[in-house]
Design a binder for these strands. Sequence first.
DNA 1: TACTTATTGGCAATCGTTTGCCAAAACTTT
DNA 2: AAAGTTTTGGCAAACGATTGCCAATAAGTA
Lengths: 345, 345
Amino acid sequence: MADVADLAGVAISTVSRALANPGRVNAKTRAKIAAAAEKLGYTPNAMARNLRIGKSNIIMIVLPGSLHHGASQIIPQVLQSINQALIQNGYNLMIANLDRDETSERHILNLAFGGTVRGAIILSSKLPEVAGRSLAEAGLPIVSLLLDMSDASVPSVVTNDRGAVAEAARMLIARGHERFFYIAGPSDNYHDIERFSGLVDAFHETGLDPASITRSGGVLSYQHGFEAGKHAVEDFTQLAVKPTAVIAESDDMAISFISGVQARGWRIPEDLSVISFDGSPVCEYCHPPLSTIEQPVEVMGKTAVEILMQRMSEGADEVPTRMIIPSRLIMRKSVGPAAKANNSC
Amino acid sequence: MADVADLAGVAISTVSRALANPGRVNAKTRAKIAAAAEKLGYTPNAMARNLRIGKSNIIMIVLPGSLHHGASQIIPQVLQSINQALIQNGYNLMIANLDRDETSERHILNLAFGGTVRGAIILSSKLPEVAGRSLAEAGLPIVSLLLDMSDASVPSVVTNDRGAVAEAARMLIARGHERFFYIAGPSDNYHDIERFSGLVDAFHETGLDPASITRSGGVLSYQHGFEAGKHAVEDFTQLAVKPTAVIAESDDMAISFISGVQARGWRIPEDLSVISFDGSPVCEYCHPPLSTIEQPVEVMGKTAVEILMQRMSEGADEVPTRMIIPSRLIMRKSVGPAAKANNSC
DNA sequence: TACTTATTGGCAATCGTTTGCCAAAACTTT
DNA sequence: AAAGTTTTGGCAAACGATTGCCAATAAGTA
């Protein structure tokens, strides 16, 4: 920096001011300084700057390892949109994996308490905590994405899981479906609870008996969305009275489920209608094209960043604690009218 | 840190030594210090440390925006494995997007020259450079993943694209296929060149005439793998003499292609055999299950990190410049013997 | 006990910025 | 030309750690 000052013929403090606080220095000198910096190939040292400022410009995204792994088709989109939004605001994105082991929790806490990161976007249902320290007390702004954690007073950006599933279920009920098969991810999970509730809601609204909903899954982790679907095929096969409609908690589950039941002779949508959640692009090319509830992940990512920025700048209090971005039901060929006689194969 | 020293009843320099250089301090005092730190909830400030040390502990992964977007199913796996390997070595992963605009290139260079990152793993075919500065001159260790850049003297971890496609092609040729349809991603791209060459190799080996290979695509960006497949359907339909075998550069392309041709009456594998590249999990559940060339992305990620670590520690010269991790051909129902009479539909 | 070795204490410089302070210089405006 | 305003210079103290140096103390060995 001293070199730049020399070359530009100005004082070192002026250079600093020009770079960090451009308003307080004349446009002409600023140009001179920029030229000198360019010529010397000078880039201010970010760590020194952040140390002095007392804040980092890195945001971390906390991903449950299982989500990351193989399964969920939406992670890349989430990362992409968040990263773009962050960069526009002058921030960088760091990845933090939250596995089931204590090491990873500790690691995340170190990032937070050690000042490496300035804020966090989490996709996990619980805040990492170990040895009495919790992410909540790190003094960082946090935003939860996909999962509603507004109860724990962390602002959340979610979709209308419950309502969207209810809508899908009503659509199926309107076509004559009365017996449903629900393929769940890990139970107790926010998504499981909300989405399943949506299905039950629709039953209540339409006067059907929720007892004719069969649940499958709930034990396996997200890590194996496809596995969960496969497993559901077994469950389905063993039912004495077959449901005519299926709602799956993720596209992956639906895809492997469909593959399995088709192999055993059921036809979709003639024997069985299927709708799933996520809106992965691949659904359009499934056999038959798969109806899915599309989460607007890009909008959600951008919104999460916006909220984070608000939290970081002004008084933290007047920001909304929950932001609901509605999903969109995309109807495709995997849905048809309920089969009249539902015989086993 | 001073507080910790007080509580532990030791000098501040001893605390620093205990944390940064544990070998030079007695186990008992180390335990005392650890206890004090735990009690006070103290975490050393990473930025201060890195500033003093002169090196960051952050590695960035440079992803072409297009790769990231929607399409490639393997990105999450790559990120996951790289991040895990990095953390084990005490590093963190930062995401850097390389779009077509100059802003993103400049941003990446700032990360490098500003000392934010210590090294880079790139999935892009070209090193970012703008205004005379190039990533190559930033003095960072760089490793290229998926794309071979060993010509540009950046160590690369790749798979045997060419050989793997050749193997797949031989397998098809052995089943009587003689006319091939190749669905390409963006042309000039490393993957396009290598994989297509593999196909041509197989033709030469077996004495067939490469003229009976029809290429499709090559214009669209990766961003639309599914689109490329759709587009290929058009091309395919217009061929007077239909090929009997298809090789696609990515699973996405194959999936949408299959969906399209099936809708127009062709049957797979009876009329057309298909093999694609990537090994996405979803292939297993396609209709029919899709044969694919599985890239060992996890191993590749770990290997890339290992090489990076070597580059960062010792003399940089004796590390291998290219590491080839072989892919595995997974044969599924999408492949069958060549149709005898190949009539149009 | 005397001597060697291992471990700690205290001090101060350093990493590369930012920033408050005040004086000096350079412009603008009456 | 005088007064007022904006812009710069120079200085020095931070930010929170690490580390070389040497003296001082503790532990281990003969």
